[in-house]
Amino acid sequence: MNKLLEIRDLHAVVDGKEILKGINLDVNAGETHAIMGPNGAGKSTLSAVLAGRENFIVTRGEVWFKGKNLLEMPAENRAREGLFLSFQYPVEIPGVSTVNFLKTAINEHRKYSGKPPYPPGEFLKMIREKMEWVGIDSKLLNRSLNEGFSGGEKKKNEIFQMAVLEPVLAILDETDSGLDIDALRVVANGVNRLKGPGNAVIVITHYQRLLDHVVPDVVHVLHDGRVVKTAGKELAIELEKKGYDWIKQQSPGEN
């Protein structure tokens, strides 16, 4: 199998506090993984560490992405290599439209892989196509990035950006939180259309409901900075019913 991501004994510290305490995780091309777990388990920290956020300090372990040492790359190169993070709280950039922002981004990706900038006509054609995928309004895309967007619009915009950048590995950090059922379906559609034999998706979520639409191959439960349980999609359903307490009790404790 084609291994996209290998995480080995990953430890990370934020503000002097150890949050990740030895994560091990493998993701193969073509797979969808769900990472679940209670608040404070380290889910968002894991995504931030993978994406290369500066003040998240890795103290031990390694991460290989497409066979390359991910931790040695600056954040922008991780993105250019095909790692995409859908933010839980997308930021606003006044005066910069989503379209312009994406144009800058995609041309950086192309430069990195030795391609010339997107010809403007083709770029717009591709943008229109992806708009349909996600069902996003062109008015939104010409407005300042995320400025004055509703919560749902921001998340849709994340998925739209993902559709445009066509990542090898997409990490969705609680993209489902705060979404109504229609928006949830839109998000799920976008993700499912991205999925293919060459790439993979990691869905970080509290709830089962997104997983009804984006069906995972593997479900991991994160607790206290470790993966405490890994199983098939039925685990998500079980968690929905029983909550996390039984997992906490089962967890191997301090070792």
């Binding site: 954040a75 922008e76 930021v91 990706h109």
Partner: peptide, 15 residues
């Protein structure tokens, strides 16, 4: 903000 810069970085745009 650092948030804005990281967001751009994550889309492949250097600081």
């Amino acid at each position: 903000g650092e948030d804005q810069l990281f967001y751009c970085n994550q889309r492949g745009i250097s600081t």
